[in-house]
Amino acid sequence: MSGDPTGDGSGPEKAPADGDLSARLKRLETQLEGKRPKAAPSSAARTGASGGSAPLGQAMRLSTEFIAGVIAGGIIGYIVDHLFGSKPWGMIVMLMLGFVTGIYNVMRVSGFSGRKTEKDPRQES
């Protein structure tokens, strides 16, 4: 909306300093980065970008993440059984693994796991 990035880059006080385009672009980027936190203070608050409905989206995510883990495990187990003729065992093992994966997915989405601090904020949204 505030479509004046060029106006920002060629600000009256700094524009003539460097003619180099890439340097100017880089400076523009840092300026934009400086401005961005006002709109979205942190990655956690970014989920608030869609108004108060973000927690609702989060809640919808949690259930499906869990179910998807179990379903994926079941499908893999079925395929393994089909390929290797290991009738019940592939399904049993992979379903359990899928169950674990589902819980792991939920923990990751809800930001429950302490590790992977770099990956988590993105997963959280």
């Binding site: 995510r61 179910i67 998807a68 883990g69 379903i71 693994l97 899928g98 994966t101 997915n105």
Partner: peptide, 22 residues
């Protein structure tokens, strides 16, 4: 690693099931 693999494979499922189910 197996958990991550299953987690990766569950992504298209969760992505599609969420939208469709809702």
């Amino acid at each position: 690693v197996p958990i991550e693999i299953v987690s990766f494979l569950s992504r298209p499922i969760s992505l599609s099931v969420r939208l469709f189910a809702n």
